[in-house]
Amino acid sequence: MAELQMPPKKKNSPVKTIKRSIIAAAVIALYIWTFLGINIDWARAFERMVNNFERVIPRLFNPDWDAFDKVMDAMIETLYIAFAGSLMAAILAIPLGFLAANNMTNNRFLTGVGKWILSAVRAFPDLILALLFVVAVGPNPFAGVLAIAIGSTGMLGKLYSEVLESIDMKVVEAMEANGANKLQILFHGVIPQVIPEFLSYAIYRFEVDVRASTILGVVGAGGIGTLIFFASSNRNWNEMGLIILIIIVVVTIIDFISAAIRKRIV
């Protein structure tokens, strides 16, 4: 049989090769910087682990049921915070969503401002917001509600504006042609199209907010996080075990219910 021929080499354009090498070099440099820069005291971490492992892990799996009432009350307070915050956000996000949607606000400058506000709000981690509000209104659940409300407004406003931008504009045009005024178009042409998605996103956001509000108490903004903070500073790992268990169960139930409701809406 005749000698087989090798396939021709793949031709890469030099630009592509150079581009790839630059990216590869940048990534390698980033990792070198990371590993040289990070300062982990392995010896100390190991020593601590030897001392503490036994004191922490087994206790986490042995929840302190005597604290059940206290923990459950705090969890319910967390749910109140999440609910009040989410609902506030669901309403606050509506005008911002309209402002940021290209097809609702015909002024490019204004939509730009709207989008910028929304992404600016989103960039703040919830806990940092909570920290700010704790300083402003004192260490109570109200600070938590405000943190959740503001944090969620950023995300919901963005999602709302995307929903608005995807609506069927022919309906709106038809109404304009019929001589309907702006408010009528809004209530009969726009809102019926976006209500299911708005609701669905708001409920989804409630799910996220329940998770987020479990930790707000760590900085003093109420809810179960307060107990998390105390349990860890008192090294009460049995109670921490119960707290984690309750969070897992409640969050799972909320996720389940919310998914079921959202399925029915859309």
Binding site: L4, P7, K10
Partner: peptide, 22 residues
Amino acid sequence: SKEDRSLAYESLRRVNIEEKLY
């Protein structure tokens, strides 16, 4: 292996599609 790669190329030539190699 070299053999595998040339075999693959040869197979593509047999069904006349070697120019689409890459």
